[in-house]
């Protein structure tokens, strides 16, 4: 059974159709990186998977459960899906340890000792055991994002969603977050990652999905998508992202849309 199975997904915000018919499968253990220009709908796609955005039409199955079905207990489904946000979204009034234990205690009803033990193990995994008593505001962006990853992992998710996890970070802090994610991938975690880090996608992804204007333009192994893109739009995007200094003046404004 596929971990994620998306079929004919459409999503509109008012008159604006952001997703225009998405079909995508993610198999257990796969690391799928979604790349594409801003506004292409990649974040919206990710947010539909755990129903942070309500799809306009279409079907999304996570581990066989139809999440758009009104009878589905969405809280139950979300427990199995970890999510990491661009803006970290750590709980500012709680310490790092409490950030990682609160959902274990309140949602999974683990006792304090178990929750703390699991929190410590996951903070160790992201290299932050010494910051357990700190508050989020006292941490760097990279540290905050690693706590956010530990917080998600403490719920024993079967699937991790990453929504541009390094986009809000200072350049020198990107590496530490990517290192944690690479470790997760190596441990066999199923991951759906929206990212602008092409080097990460090329190196870690088992599959790269290129989206533009609300549709999947092409997908395949990173070696294929990056080295021999089939579609003109993909080539155009990669050219602009991978060789920004070689974009000539004649190309300014000449975005390939449609």
């Amino acid at each position: 059974m596929s971990t994620i199975e998306i079929a004919e997904l459409h999503k509109s915000f008012g008159k604006l159709e952001v997703l225009r018919g998405i079909d995508l499968k993610v198999e257990p253990g796969e690391v799928v990186c979604v790349i594409g220009p801003s506004g292409s709908g990649k974040s919206t796609l990710l947010r539909c998977v755990n129903l942070l955005e309500e799809p306009t039409s279409g079907s999304i199955r996570v581990a066989g459960v139809e999440v758009t079905d009104p009878d589905t207990d969405i809280d139950e489904v979300r427990r199995g899906i970890g999510m990491v946000f661009q803006q970290f979204n750590l709980f500012g009034h709680l310490t790092v340890r409490e950030n990682v234990t609160i959902a274990q205690r309140r949602v999974l009803k683990r006792n304090r000792a178990d929750a703390t033990r699991i929190a410590t193990a996951n903070l160790d995994r992201v290299g932050l055991t010494d910051k357990a008593a700190s508050y989020p505001a006292q941490l760097s962006g990279g540290q905050q994002q690693r706590v956010a990853i530990a917080r998600a992992l403490a719920m024993d998710p079967k699937l991790m969603l990453f929504d541009e996890p390094t986009s809000a970070l200072d350049p020198e802090l990107v590496g530490e977050v990517l290192a944690v994610m690479r470790g997760l991938a190596a441990d066999g975690m199923t991951m759906l990652v929206v990212t602008h880090e092409m080097a990460f996608a090329r190196e870690v992804a088992s599959r790269v999905v290129f989206m533009d204007a609300g549709v999947i333009v092409e997908q395949g192994p990173p070696a294929e998508v990056f080295n021999k893109p089939r579609e003109a739009r993909t080539r155009e995007f990669l050219h602009r992202v991978l060789e920004p200094t070689r974009v000539s003046e004649t190309e300014i404004g000449a975005h390939l849309t449609e």
């Binding site: 755990n50 809280d75 899906i81 970890g82 979204n89």
Partner: peptide, 18 residues
């Protein structure tokens, strides 16, 4: 309170009330 706080909490499986 930033909207992301509620989203993060819901993502962890908390009900709206919780």
């Amino acid at each position: 309170v930033p909207k992301g706080q509620l989203e993060a909490a819901r993502t962890l499986g908390m009900s709206h009330t919780r």
